[in-house]
């Protein structure tokens, strides 16, 4: 094969462009923007993006329209007259059963369920993971396997037994009952996450801390926890989105006055009496989805980093 440099010089000389560099072409090799591969690649991406974005667009647009405009049936048309009334109604006035104070009640219920559940489950699971990673005891591996096995059993199997357990404990239907359920169901995956992260921390650090006279809790709080911010962020994201989006446990283990936002959303959207207010339904759905979305936007970068860090060693 001919030397590419001389080849390109020859080509340049053959159809010399006036004013062009006599030394031949320079810089990066020019690429055609509309090559067959690019068209295919970006076309696919565009279709996929549209596929995901279109429903969201319809929701936003519909939530900003008044009912007369919706009845025209053009679901893709942008609103002629923008109104925020559906959002106000969804938040504060929509009726579910007897109360007509909208989603706001469900929102605060969800917050009251979410905060203790997230804190409690992460606190317990991180200590679990730490003990399993660093303080191996007789049967710790068996214990771990059983715990992980729990992650593969469908929730529905445990639904009724848990009702009985909560009833016997006297916390069935209360917020604390639901918090306990969320803590239990978060345990397998969170423990796995924390255990894997802690085993990736060099064992010699743990040994050094023991020689330095630190006990179980001192090592956990002063050595392990400060080194594990990414995994705590990951756990928080998993728990916040999981618990916020939960519907099944919310509807099974609480009473109507404690229903979380998702259950209330369902009740608003599926209420049968009167006119179906599509705009209010759309606004209510968007409102419910805002919290997990906000969490992703705020901490997405840390999330990816933490997942990757935990994945290195298992």
């Amino acid at each position: 094969m001919a030397n590419p440099a001389t080849l390109s010089a020859a080509v340049a000389a053959a159809d010399a462009i006036p004013g062009a560099d006599p030394g031949g072409p320079r810089g990066a090799r020019p690429r055609r923007a509309l090559s067959r591969g690019n068209v295919f690649l970006y076309g696919t991406l565009l279709v996929a993006a549209l596929y995901y974005a279109l429903p969201l667009y319809v929701m936003i647009v519909t939530s900003l329209k008044g009912m007369p405009e919706i009845r025209l049936g053009n679901i893709f048309a942008p609103p002629v007259e923008v109104t925020f009334q559906p959002w106000v109604k969804a938040w504060g006035e929509a009726c579910t059963g007897l109360n007509c104070d909208g989603l706001s009640r469900g929102f605060w219920n969800s917050v009251r369920i979410l905060v203790p559940s997230v804190i409690l489950s992460i606190a317990v699971a991180s200590v679990n993971g730490y003990a399993l990673a660093n303080w191996r005891f007789r049967g710790s591996e068996t214990f771990f396997v059983i715990l992980i096995f729990g992650a593969f059993i469908p929730y529905q199997v445990m639904l009724y037994p848990l009702v009985i357990i909560l009833r016997e404990l006297g916390i069935y239907g209360t917020l604390w009952g639901l918090i306990l359920v969320h803590t239990i169901f978060g345990m397998p995956i969170l423990t796995l996450l924390f255990r894997n992260y802690f085993t990736s921390i060099p064992e010699e650090l743990f040994k050094a801390a023991r020689v330095d006279g630190a006990g179980f809790w001192a090592i956990y709080f002063k050595i392990m926890m400060p080194m594990s911010l990414p995994i705590f962020v990951v756990a928080t994201i998993i728990q916040v989105t999981g618990i916020w989006n939960d519907f099944l446990f919310g509807v099974v283990y609480t009473r109507p006055e404690n229903y979380p936002m998702t259950v209330q959303l369902n009740n608003i959207v599926n209420s049968v009496q009167g006119v179906k207010e599509y705009n209010v339904n759309m606004a209510a759905t968007l409102l419910t989805g805002l919290v997990p979305l906000a969490i992703y936007f705020v901490s997405g970068k840390l999330f990816v980093r933490g997942i990757a860090a935990g994945a290195v060693k298992g």
């Binding site: 060099p202 010699e204 040994k207 801390a209 023991r210 020689v211 330095d212 006279g213 002063k222 080194m227």
Partner: peptide
């Protein structure tokens, strides 16, 4: 280990990364 009157130096040094040198020395 702490009650044995021993100090240990590890291959990877095992310094606590979140603490300063002073903090590392003071920890024990």
């Amino acid at each position: 280990p702490k009650d044995r009157g021993i100090g240990m130096v590890f291959q990877s040094y095992a310094l606590y990364p979140q603490m300063s040198v002073r903090g590392n020395l003071a920890f024990g």
